[in-house]
Design a protein around this nucleic acid. Structure first.
Ligand code: NAD
Ligand code: NAD
Lengths: 251, 251
DNA sequence: AGGCGTTTGTGAACGTACGCACAAACTCAC
DNA sequence: GTGAGTTTGTGCGTACGTTCACAAACGCCT
C-alpha cells in the first residue's frame, strides 16, 4: 500500500522476478519493532504472537505470517524472544548501523523535524540540514548548522548520506529531488504535496497531511450520511449522489 | 494499504455489507484532487485520463477505474472536465463544506502544524488548539488561542469539530484519544508513535515519520546488498541471513 | 517418560487490487 | 453524413494480501 512508486521499483530488480519480502510485510515490520522495544522496556523477555499483535494493532495470524517470511525463530508453546526478534527485524530493515539522513528545507516543518529527538532511538541520525534561503544558512538548530543547498554533493559524500527528507515548498521539491539524486541520494521522504519524478533505483515515499485528513473526511461524510438517514436507505446500499452540473463549481 | 483500523471499521457499518468505494480508491482520490487543482490553476479545462494519471503519479487504467467507481462523467474522445471532476471528488470526500479540525499538543510539531497555511486550500480549518501545559495555554499561534485540554468538550461542541490531530508525546496519546472520543470526535490523525485503541465507529489514521524512514532503510539495505554482490547471488534470489544468536543483542 | 496445554508456522480459501486490452462512444474535419 | 482518430469505461486474467484453521513442536508437570 502504500505510496508513490515509480516504474519497477527496487525489490524486483531484474527480469527473473523474486518476491522476497511482501511489501505489505515490510510496511508493518517497523510497527512490530516499535512494539517490541516497548515490551523490552516494560520487562518482557518473551512475547506470544497474540500479545505482540495486540501491541502492534494487528491480527495475530498476520503477524505470524509476516514473521515467518523472515525465517524467524519463535518457540512453539512459548512465543518469541523479544531481544532476538528485535535484532532480527533491525537486521532485515538494515538498521544494524545507524543511517544518516539529510533534511532539505528548514522552514516551519523542517525546524520541527530537525529538533525532533525521536530519530536516534529508531535508527537514524540527522546528519545535515540544507536550505536555499541565505538568511537561514549558517543558523544552528540542535547543534547542527544549516548548509547552503549548493554544498549538497560535498556534504552527502562526506557523511555517506543515502536518505533525504524534503520539507520545502512544492514548487521547489522537484528541483531539490533532482539535486539530491545527482548527489547520490537513493531514498527520499517527501513532505511537499506534489509528485516527484525520479530515475529507477530511487525510492520515494510521500507524506501528505492533507491527504490523511481528506481520507478521514470521507469516512466522516459516510458516517453522517448513515446516521442522518437511519432507515430504508434506497436498497441497503449507499448511493453516491452525483453533483449536479455546476454545483459548487468555481467557474 | 494503509494504517491502523480497528475491528469492523466504518465503511461496512452493519451486517448487510456494502462495498461502495474500495478503500484503495478512497486513498487515491485526494491525490487526484490535488493534481486537478493544479491543472485548473494552470489553465486546463479538460484533461485526459493519461494526463491526469501522470500528474497524480499513477497508472491511467487505475485512474479510470477509480473514477468509474464514483459514476464519473468523462467524455470519450475528449477526457474529463476539470472543474466538474473537482466538484465530484470534493463531494464524495465530504469537502463541500470546510471541515473544522482540532489540534492537541502544541509542542515542536504542533507549532509547525498550527502555523501551516496549506490546510485552507485543501478543505480544512484548524478551529482550535489544545495543550495540557499551563505555560502554553493562552499563547496565540497564527491568531488562534491555545486552550486548556480540559475545555475540550465545550470547544468541540461549539465549533462542531469531528476531526482531531494528536501531536502529544506517545505516553499521553491514549489518554488524549479517550478525551477526544468522549467529547464527540469520531476521526483522529495520530502523530504519536503508539497504537491507539478506540471504540468502533471512530477512525484512526497514523503518521509515523520513523516508520517511513525505516521502510526506506529496508530498500536501501536491499539495494546495497545487490550492488555489493553483483553476480551469481546464490540462486537468483536474495536470501535473508538470519542474525546469529546474540548478535547485536542488548542483553 | 509420557501426556497435556500452549503456541508457532503454514496450507488453503477467500477477497481485494492491479493492469491489459478492447469495444463503445464521442469529436472533428471534410 | 461519414470516416478517421481519440479516449473512456470495463471485462478478465493475474498477483497480492488476509484470514481461518490445524498439525507439528515445544515446555512443563507428574
Ligand atoms: N508546516 C506544516 O505543518 C506542513 C504540514 C504538511 C505539509 N507541509 C509541507 O511541507 C513543506 C514545507 O512546509 P513549511 O511550512 O515548512 O514551509 P516553509 O515555507 O516554512 O519552509 C520551506 C523552507 O524551504 C526552503 N527552500 C525553498 N526552496 C528551496 C530550495 N530550492 N532548496 C532548499 N530549500 C528551499 C525555504 O527557504 C524555507 O526555509 C511544504 O511543501 C508544505 O506544503 C508542511
Ligand atoms: N517533532 C517532530 O518532528 C516529530 C516527528 C515525528 C513524530 N513526532 C511525534 O509527535 C509528537 C509530538 O512531538 P513534539 O516534538 O511536538 O513533542 P513536544 O514535547 O515538543 O510537544 C508535545 C506537546 O504536547 C503537550 N502535551 C503533553 N501531554 C498532553 C496532554 N495530556 N494533553 C494535551 N497536551 C499534552 C505538551 O505540553 C507539549 O506541548 C510526539 O509523539 C512525537 O513522537 C514528532
Amino acid at each position: 500500500m502504500s505510496q508513490q512508486r515509480n516504474g519497477q521499483a527496487a525489490g524486483a530488480p531484474d527480469g527473473a522476478g523474486f518476491p522476497d519480502l511482501p511489501e505489505a510485510t515490510v510496511a508493518r515490520l517497523p510497527e512490530y519493532l516499535r512494539a517490541l522495544h516497548h515490551l523490552a522496556e516494560t520487562g518482557f523477555d518473551t512475547v506470544s504472537s497474540e500479545g505482540l499483535a495486540a501491541a502492534a494493532g494487528v491480527n495475530s495470524a498476520k503477524l505470524r505470517k509476516d514473521l515467518s517470511h523472515l525465517g524467524s525463530y519463535g518457540t512453539r508453546g512459548v512465543g518469541y524472544d523479544v531481544a532476538l526478534l528485535i535484532a532480527q527485524i533491525e537486521h532485515v530493515l538494515g538498521l544494524t548501523q545507524r543511517r544518516t539522513v539529510a533534511l532539505v528545507g528548514v522552514g516551519n516543518l523542517g525546524h520541527a523535524l530537525a529538533g525532533y529527538g525521536g530519530f536516534g532511538t529508531r535508527g537514524f541520525r540527522i546528519a545535515a540540514l540544507f536550505d536555499a534561503d541565505p538568511g537561514r544558512v549558517g543558523e544552528q538548530i540542535n547543534g547542527l548548522p544549516v548548509h547552503d543547498i549548493r554544498r549538497l554533493p560535498e556534504v552527502v559524500a562526506a557523511e555517506a548520506i543515502s536518505i533525504a527528507v524534503i520539507a520545502t515548498p512544492a514548487e521547489a521539491a522537484q528541483q531539490v529531488a533532482d539535486q539530491l539524486v545527482a548527489a547520490g541520494v537513493t531514498s527520499i521522504l517527501n513532505f511537499a504535496p506534489c509528485v516527484l519524478s525520479v530515475p529507477d533505483g530511487v525510492d520515494v515515499r510521500k507524506v501528505d497531511l492533507a491527504v490523511e485528513l481528506q481520507i478521514l473526511s470521507f469516512h466522516e461524510h459516510r458516517k453522517s450520511a448513515l446516521t442522518t438517514l437511519p432507515s430504508h436507505p434506497a436498497n441497503g446500499r449507499v448511493k453516491i449522489r452525483p453533483a449536479l452540473n455546476g454545483e459548487a463549481l468555481a467557474t
